[in-house]
Amino acid sequence: MSAEATAPRVVVLDHGSGNVRSVVRALEAAGAEVELTADRKSALAADGLVVPGVGAFASTCEQVLAVGGDRLIERRLAGGLPVLGICVGLQILFDAGTEHGVRSAGLGQWPGEITRLEASVVPHMGWNTVEAPTETRLFAGIEEERFYFVHSYAARTWEMEPIGSLPAPLVTWAEHDGDRFIAAVENAALTATQFHPEKSGEAGAALLSNWLRTLPRRGTAAGAAEGLEEPVR
């Protein structure tokens, strides 16, 4: 991103998840102007919205719902405005997650269920390579790099069918102890990673820079939010 270009404005959704400060710092280092907030107007006005998540599927989903994050995500996507989920922030985008025998509803942006990894060593913790599709923009120039994972659950199948003439989502895979799982998804305005780019060193910084390059520049916060506000009922 050139020094002359206006820095993209990014909101990191403050829903009570841990590790958010490192996400904020990583985005700032990648060239973004970042605000940590759950404020509706700010989240709708931002060029990009990041939904982080650590810990359990059910509790993260409850936290996101509690601050209206589901409605913010829906509203942004309806306007074609970018959203990035990280770690459990990817997982809750699916229909459901099952942890310790308990099935919980997700946000339902993608069909499928988050399940426990079938590996001899769980959690999957550490650096791993990914298998990105050739058309990827998120992994452009870093397809062979390693990224930092820490998780016991994952989306282990991709169930979304093509919709009409819309481009099919780009799905990136990784493998742990013979078990394949989804490492990232690029689905128009909705992008997510199972790994932590903010913990992935230079490769993670490059990935965040790639995502920032896809963001629109939407002018002032007030003007950008105006067209996305829901009518008063």
Rank of each mutant, 00 (worst) to 15 (best):
S2F: 11
E4T: 09
T6H: 11
P8Q: 09
N19T: 00
R25E: 07
L27H: 03
L27Q: 08
E35A: 12
L36Y: 05
D47L: 06
D47K: 09
G48N: 03
V51Y: 01
P52K: 06
G53H: 07
V54K: 04
A56V: 06
A58K: 13
S59N: 13
V67F: 02
G68N: 11
E74H: 15
L77C: 12
A78E: 15
G79H: 15
G79E: 14
G89I: 08
L90H: 08
D95Q: 11
A96M: 13
E99Y: 13
V102P: 01
G106V: 13
G108R: 10
E118S: 15
A119N: 11
A119F: 12
S120C: 12
W127T: 05
T129L: 08
A132Q: 14
F139N: 00
G141L: 02
I142F: 07
I142Y: 02
E143Q: 14
F147Y: 13
Y153F: 15
A154N: 01
P162V: 10
I163D: 15
G164T: 07
G164A: 12
P169G: 10
V171E: 02
T172R: 12
A174M: 11
A183E: 01
A183F: 10
E186S: 08
A188M: 12
T193P: 04
G201T: 05
G201H: 03
E202C: 03
G204P: 02
A206C: 08
L207C: 08
N210Y: 01
L212P: 05
L215S: 03
A221I: 15
A224D: 05
A224I: 07
E226S: 10
E226M: 15
E229N: 12
P231M: 07
V232T: 13
V232C: 13
